[in-house]
Measured scan of single mutants.
Amino acid sequence: MTSCHIAEEHIQKVAIFGGTHGNELTGVFLVKHWLENGAEIQRTGLEVKPFITNPRAVKKCTRYIDCDLNRIFDLENLGKKMSEDLPYEVRRAQEINHLFGPKDSEDSYDIIFDLHNTTSNMGCTLILEDSRNNFLIQMFHYIKTSLAPLPCYVYLIEHPSLKYATTRSIAKYPVGIEVGPQPQGVLRADILDQMRKMIKHALDFIHHFNEGKEFPPCAIEVYKIIEKVDYPRDENGEIAAIIHPNLQDQDWKPLHPGDPMFLTLDGKTIPLGGDCTVYPVFVNEAAYYEKKEAFAKTTKLTLNAKSIRCCLH
């Protein structure tokens, strides 16, 4: 018999989150649709729960009410004593943790798909938090293969000092899905179709896995975050240069030392320094102006996964 890495157990509980950011409308629209008619997301033997994560922000069509829901799922915020004085999103995070967690427990949901849009030209993107997770690498390989020839990129946010504390991190297997470009507060049919297909293929993978299909060893190309880059700023902290036209919409493309990065209003080009080629992502993302992030630098690498098969009882 072929030796293989056996994944822990079959997958039982899956959640699909929309509206973690209330103005990213593809996930909101799909989740609302699936709450009314969820036939397309159901798979035999699998509990799939669509869920609106930040209903107040969705109602106002804004990213958040008090603070970013997708950055506060750490033990400090989840452990705060519940009171009306807490920011709305912290209270909501505790409610979500109660419903789908608790985080880092045996009772937490197996998989959470968190649906997002970006204003950046990132196409279909899967966000991975753990480079050693054979199950998710296999799932992402399946999704990428199923979507081809449509490109699907994998963004690895594993980093020693950049801690995200994402909404989906309460699950055993957290999956971020990011599709763009799409303006905030807008629905685009092409973007919706791409996100819908990503979810379909992900659920198909889980179904095949649960039925005992063995997935042979595989490898995927990923883009691992190195650092986030702020806009150049003046002495008052105001933005002093904008994304250069040569960099705009060039997510995932190589940016070499000396290539144009920013452009000042008086026409001066600010190039990339250093001696390493990087791959920019979230270029000129609207939501990241407040976070002082013009783009993120990534490096390209390959992740390998062992063969996996479900432990059938």
Rank of each mutant, 00 (worst) to 15 (best):
Y164Q: 07
L126P: 00
L265F: 14
R43V: 05
Y142T: 00
L75N: 12
P102C: 13
A57V: 04
F73H: 11
H201S: 06
G176M: 15
R91N: 15
V222S: 05
E285H: 13
F100V: 08
Y64G: 06
K163D: 14
Y164W: 12
N210K: 11
V90L: 09
F215K: 01
D107H: 13
K103N: 10
Y223L: 03
V222C: 10
T53G: 13
K49G: 03
I239Q: 10
K228R: 15
L147Y: 04
L187Q: 05
E8C: 10
T167W: 09
L69Y: 07
H10V: 10
Q94E: 10
Y288S: 13
L263N: 04
V175W: 02
H98F: 14
I225C: 06
A7G: 10
I137M: 07
E214L: 09
R233Q: 13
L263V: 13
I72R: 13
E211P: 01
T166N: 15
W34T: 03
L128M: 12
Y231N: 01
L187I: 11
L162S: 11
C152F: 00
C67A: 10
K80E: 09
C310M: 09
I225Q: 08
G123C: 05
P102W: 08
G123Y: 04
F205C: 01
F73S: 09
I270K: 05
Y109M: 09
E290D: 13
C4W: 14
P160W: 09
M139W: 00
V48W: 00
D266N: 12
D68Q: 05
Q194E: 06
L156S: 05
A286K: 13
C276V: 11
A15P: 01
G237R: 05
V186K: 00
N117W: 03
R56I: 12
A39N: 12
N246F: 12
I52W: 02
W34H: 01
L203D: 01
Y64T: 07
L86N: 14
R91I: 08
E238Q: 13
V154K: 00
L128V: 01
A240S: 11
I41Y: 03
I199T: 06
Q12W: 07
G18A: 14
E221P: 06
E89F: 04
S83D: 06
T269R: 05
L255S: 03
A202Q: 00
S83C: 07
N236K: 11
